[in-house]
Computed example of a mutant assay.
Amino acid sequence: MTLSTVRPAVRVGGFSSVLRIGALLTVIAMIAVLFGLFALDIALGEFRIPIGRVLDVLGGGGTRAQRFVIMDSRLPRALTAVVVGAALGLAGAVTQSILRNPLASPDLLGITSGASCGAVAVLVGMGGIATGTGAVLGVSAAALVGGLLTAVVIYLLAWGRTTTGDGGVMGFRLVLIGIGVNAALLSVVNWLLTRATLTDAAHAQQWLTGSLNAADWSTLIPASVGLGLALIVTAGSARTLAILRFGTDTTRILGVRMQTQQAILIAAAVSCAALATAAVGPMGFVGLAAPQIARRLLRTAGEPLIASALAGAIAVVGADLLARTVFPVSLPVGVVTAAVGGPFLLYLLVRTNRKATL
């Protein structure tokens, strides 16, 4: 290795890191793409507003009608799309990094279904009585509890003896159990819908498609809390998360309490995904695809956290823009993400199978 290939180091106080110019430029480009899609998502609609006017209104200018359309109607929806996408992308990156499996996303592991089960139980049980902030908080709490309980059940069922003979969670077994639990919880959700009244079932079904149509400032709160919590935990455990990617033996040699750190990080990822799901409903395949796309863009060995969050935000905002402007009728965002994410899942399965046979 020549001196010209050595990457420069950045030191701020006790913090030090290697500066990767290519990765930094890619992240900056992703931020620019996200901002552009965010501005377009606000500007386009039945009442179109030039992007320059959108920026003027966000800065405090514009007419009263423009401020109403942007600040009260479109801005909460666009911000919710950004936060929910970033939360799902970050949750997917954490789970895939810990389990070292590209299929270990919150939706395939059953976490999203557990959150959906809790939320639908509340939506059906309230009978349409609760509205506004009270309803949002009730659905958010139920989704969080449902997601956490599902994670605990999957974690306990996946516990067993590792290759070294010690007790621990085996990643591949956790994925298989998560897929089974996911199928069971989807059956519970369908059963709840059959027991509901026509009005409650229609409300719950609209939520289950992953729609931003009802997004407002109150729905933005739980998703923001989940994303903020996950960012704090992952920022404090960034070094530990990087070590966990090396496997059981290396992790223990370096003195990391593997099971404790896994439990903390998984709890943060589950809370993040559950609260994001509570805000707008399940968004299929965002948590699965975003980390893998970010990993390929940055060419890193593991799933990059910040880039995964940006990729998730870009995916959801872009899907919302497509759902509202391209198709003859406005579609739920979850339909678009599922339509794109399904083929991506098949790609990952084929790629994983080819690696296993080489």
Score class of each variant (00 low, 15 high):
225 V>Y: 05
225 V>F: 13
226 G>E: 00
227 L>G: 10
228 G>A: 06
228 G>R: 11
228 G>T: 11
230 A>Q: 06
231 L>W: 07
231 L>P: 04
233 V>A: 12
233 V>T: 12
234 T>D: 07
234 T>A: 11
236 G>V: 10
236 G>K: 09
237 S>G: 13
237 S>C: 15
238 A>V: 15
239 R>N: 13
240 T>P: 11
240 T>K: 15
240 T>C: 13
241 L>Q: 10
242 A>H: 14
242 A>T: 13
242 A>C: 13
243 I>T: 14
244 L>G: 04
247 G>K: 05
247 G>T: 07
247 G>L: 09
248 T>W: 02
248 T>E: 14
251 T>L: 02
251 T>Y: 00
251 T>G: 14
252 R>M: 13
254 L>N: 06
255 G>L: 00
255 G>E: 03
255 G>A: 03
255 G>W: 05
256 V>F: 07
257 R>G: 09
257 R>S: 14
259 Q>C: 10
260 T>A: 14
262 Q>N: 14
263 A>R: 14
263 A>V: 13
263 A>I: 11
265 L>Y: 04
265 L>T: 04
265 L>D: 07
266 I>T: 13
266 I>G: 03
268 A>D: 05
269 A>C: 03
271 S>W: 07
272 C>R: 04
272 C>W: 01
272 C>D: 00
272 C>E: 01
274 A>F: 02
274 A>I: 03
275 L>Q: 02
275 L>Y: 00
278 A>G: 12
278 A>L: 01
279 A>W: 06
280 V>T: 11
281 G>Y: 02
281 G>W: 00
281 G>V: 04
281 G>Q: 02
284 G>E: 06
286 V>K: 03
286 V>Y: 00
287 G>S: 08
287 G>T: 08
287 G>Y: 07
287 G>I: 09
288 L>N: 06
289 A>D: 00
291 P>I: 05
292 Q>V: 14
292 Q>A: 13
292 Q>K: 10
293 I>L: 13
293 I>H: 04
294 A>W: 04
294 A>T: 08
295 R>W: 08
297 L>Y: 02
298 L>W: 05
299 R>H: 12
299 R>I: 08
299 R>C: 10
300 T>K: 02
301 A>L: 13
301 A>D: 14
302 G>Y: 10
306 I>M: 11
307 A>H: 01
307 A>K: 03
308 S>W: 04
309 A>T: 06
309 A>G: 14
309 A>Y: 04
309 A>Q: 03
315 A>H: 09
316 V>F: 12
318 G>F: 05
320 D>G: 12
322 L>A: 12
323 A>G: 06
323 A>N: 09
324 R>K: 08
326 V>K: 03
328 P>C: 00
328 P>L: 04
328 P>S: 02
328 P>T: 00
329 V>A: 11
329 V>Y: 06
331 L>N: 05
331 L>M: 09
333 V>N: 06
333 V>T: 15
336 V>T: 12
337 T>I: 12
338 A>F: 09
338 A>W: 08
339 A>K: 06
339 A>H: 11
341 G>P: 03
341 G>E: 10
341 G>W: 01
341 G>A: 03
342 G>A: 13
343 P>K: 01
343 P>I: 05
345 L>K: 01
345 L>H: 05
345 L>G: 00
347 Y>C: 01
347 Y>Q: 01
349 L>R: 02
349 L>V: 15
349 L>H: 07
351 R>W: 10
352 T>C: 06
353 N>T: 14
355 K>Y: 06
355 K>T: 15
